[in-house]
Computed example of a mutant assay.
Amino acid sequence: MSLAKKGGEVMGQEKEMTLVDHLGDLRKVIIRSLSVVGVALVIGLVVASPLLDYLKAVPPASGIAWNVFSPWDAVGIYMKCALVIALAVSLPYVLHQVWGFVRPGLRPEEQYVALRYIPGAAALFLLGVAFAYFILFPMAYGFTSKMAQRMGLQETYGVIQYFTFMFNIILPTALLFQLPVVVLFLTRLGIVTPSLLRRMRKVAYLALVAIAVLVTPPDFISDFLVAIPLVVLYELSILLSARAYRQQQALEGQAAGENNVSSVQLG
């Protein structure tokens, strides 16, 4: 067997082992994350009952009777509430595990920046949940309730329907609040640039207004109250992207300068 062939086989084995190592690390990340989510789910099962009691005691739920239309409705809503709590509690750890998985492929300065995404993403998620629950959800519920009264309909809500309506508003809004983190991450990867975001500003505004119309009651005030924070988040994303882009350009320029100095010294 030739040396070239042997060398090719050795290189192929090294690449295969590298792939296997990555898959092994990914498996560990998934197992650890699921384990923490499982522990957080136990906490959620304990906290779900007082949380449901709180939600029943505050408007708009305090003014309506919760009904169940199936024997599994009570169990279903209890488990859903516990799962939401578990996801919220375990989110920082899961993000940290994801960061640990991608860390070996990053430069030291990129590792530091990526680690800073974790508290930012968690904070924006909680901010989105708070905005959706305390501002958006009451507006949406009030609108539907007024419509029912105008049509002379008797409002009889099931607990599953109530929470499904609430979660369908809260979760998408919380995810939309991750926009600055996503844009910053894409900027670090070189997929988007600040100039591209500025050129796409009109299209982005139109898309954000369309999203605001979809997740809010069909009245101008609700659309306006939701569209404004989304636009502010987009502008914040542009500022963060511009800062990250400048830092990345400076680092690349510094690295290029060091390479030139090394080349001159070797020459």
Rank of each mutant, 00 (worst) to 15 (best):
L175W: 05
G267R: 14
E16D: 15
L233K: 00
S262T: 10
Q161A: 12
G12D: 15
A210P: 06
L83C: 02
G7S: 14
G267P: 12
L179N: 04
A210K: 11
T187W: 12
F185Y: 11
T216I: 03
Y93M: 05
S62D: 04
E109Y: 15
L196H: 13
R116G: 15
V113E: 08
F131A: 05
S262M: 08
L91F: 01
L153D: 04
A174T: 03
V261E: 14
V213F: 07
V36R: 01
P92M: 03
P217Y: 00
F185L: 10
G142T: 11
D219N: 07
A57V: 12
Q13V: 13
T193V: 12
N260V: 14
A204T: 09
G12F: 14
Q149C: 13
I191P: 00
V102K: 02
V215M: 04
V94Y: 02
G12C: 14
V68M: 12
G105M: 11
V42S: 12
R198M: 13
A61W: 08
V39Y: 08
T187K: 06
S237W: 04
G142Y: 08
I238P: 00
F165A: 10
A256M: 15
Q13F: 11
V181M: 06
R32D: 05
T173P: 02
Y112Q: 15
L55Q: 09
V203I: 14
L124C: 05
Q247D: 06
L83D: 03
N67T: 11
A174I: 02
L153C: 06
F177S: 06
Q247I: 12
L51H: 04
L127F: 09
I30H: 05
A40I: 06
R27P: 01
I118D: 03
L239D: 13
M79S: 11
I85C: 03
A250S: 12
V213A: 11
L176H: 01
V47S: 11
W72Q: 14
A114Y: 04
Y245K: 04
T164F: 11
L175N: 01
M166V: 06
E16F: 15
K80V: 05
G128H: 05
I221N: 09
M139L: 10
V232R: 00
N259K: 15
G63D: 00
P50R: 00
P60Y: 12
Q149Y: 14
L186C: 01
D21P: 07
Q247K: 15
L206A: 13
A88F: 04
L52N: 07
V29W: 01
K56N: 10
P108D: 03
L251P: 11
Q265F: 08
F224A: 12
